[in-house]
């Protein structure tokens, strides 16, 4: 008995050591953000620095706010648009089946598998010709294209879980389509909508390739802005860490708080 208890305790210790090792880069980044610049990149590392908020001040002195706002509007805007398109589509695919469910589903998911390489050159040239570069609206539209397939897939599987009887009862009552969707079905799948929305928001918030290529100054979101903190002349690690911390906090906190939904969304089919 005691030997198996001991073994269990040992496995727990090993688990925690591994988990903390995995989490270490994030923890170290946040810690570094609270250091003064001269104690950030030292050899050996400084474990007992003079903690300060100074570097966060420096981040906002460098005018990070507009970049965060750009990220926020592109992420929120694209997420709302994606949900507005994906919920009806997923509804059609799961509750009111169209003839070629599988073809439509495969089409959506195959667009997600298509590398951005397939479309980036014409997209860039088209945007250039209509003056759409460095424009947050166009970036938002492109994020809709990126996230739509994911949202359709997730929503479809959440909707498929709605008991048929509930919908049939509503239909027998002569409920109109709008009532059927908004009053009967949507309240049941609201957690699913939240999960899909959160995942789309996270992907848009973290996206780098399009953001870097298609924006310059006005519409630049946070990810490419972060790279500007790397400074060839002086020390920059503390201010870079502070900027990176600010950049990841909204999404990491949201992911932690909505963890259950997130995990369910990501591993949906696996659970079912």
């Amino acid at each position: 008995m005691t030997s198996s208890r001991l073994r269990a305790a040992l496995i727990t210790v090993v688990t925690w050591v591994l988990v903390l090792m995995f989490f270490f880069p994030v923890a170290w980044m946040v810690f570094t953000a609270f250091k003064p610049e001269h104690q950030a990149a030292t050899s050996p590392p400084t474990f007992a620095p003079d903690l300060t908020l100074d570097r966060f001040g420096a981040v906002f002195d460098r005018d990070m706010m507009p970049y965060l706002i750009n990220s926020f509007s592109a992420s929120l805007g694209s997420t709302l648009l994606v949900l507005a398109l994906a919920i009806p589509a997923a509804y059609a695919l799961s509750i009111r089946p169209v003839t070629n469910v599988r073809d439509a589903l495969f089409f959506f998911i195959s667009t997600r598998f298509m590398p951005v390489a397939a479309s980036i050159i014409p997209v860039y040239l088209l945007l250039q010709s209509v003056g759409g570069l460095d424009n947050i609206t166009w970036l938002t539209v492109l994020y809709v294209g990126v996230n739509l397939p994911i949202a359709v897939w997730m929503m479809r599987s959440f909707l498929a879980e709605v008991p048929r009887e509930v919908i049939e009862a509503a239909q027998l009552d002569g409920a109109r389509l709008g009532t059927e969707i908004f009053r009967v079905v949507l309240p049941i799948v609201l957690p699913g909508v939240a999960a899909a929305g959160l995942i789309c928001f996270i992907f848009a918030w973290n996206e780098f390739f399009l953001a870097n290529l298609l924006t310059a100054q006005v519409a630049r979101p946070t990810p490419p802005f972060l790279t500007s903190f790397v400074d060839g002349r002086g020390q920059f690690l503390a201010v870079l860490s502070a900027a990176a911390t600010v950049a990841i906090v909204p999404v990491v906190l949201a992911g932690w708080i909505a963890q259950k939904q997130l995990v369910r969304g990501l591993a949906m089919g696996a659970i079912k």
Binding site: F22, F23, P25, V26, W28, M29, I202, W205, N206, F208, T222, P223, P224, L226, T227, F229, V230, L240, S241, A244, A247, I248, V251, V252, G255, W256, Q259, L262, V263
Partner: peptide, 14 residues
């Protein structure tokens, strides 16, 4: 789950 949530650009820089 945190590494999956962290912005890849931030992760690469750090």
């Amino acid at each position: 789950i945190t590494p999956f949530l962290v912005m890849p650009a931030a992760a690469a820089l750090i």
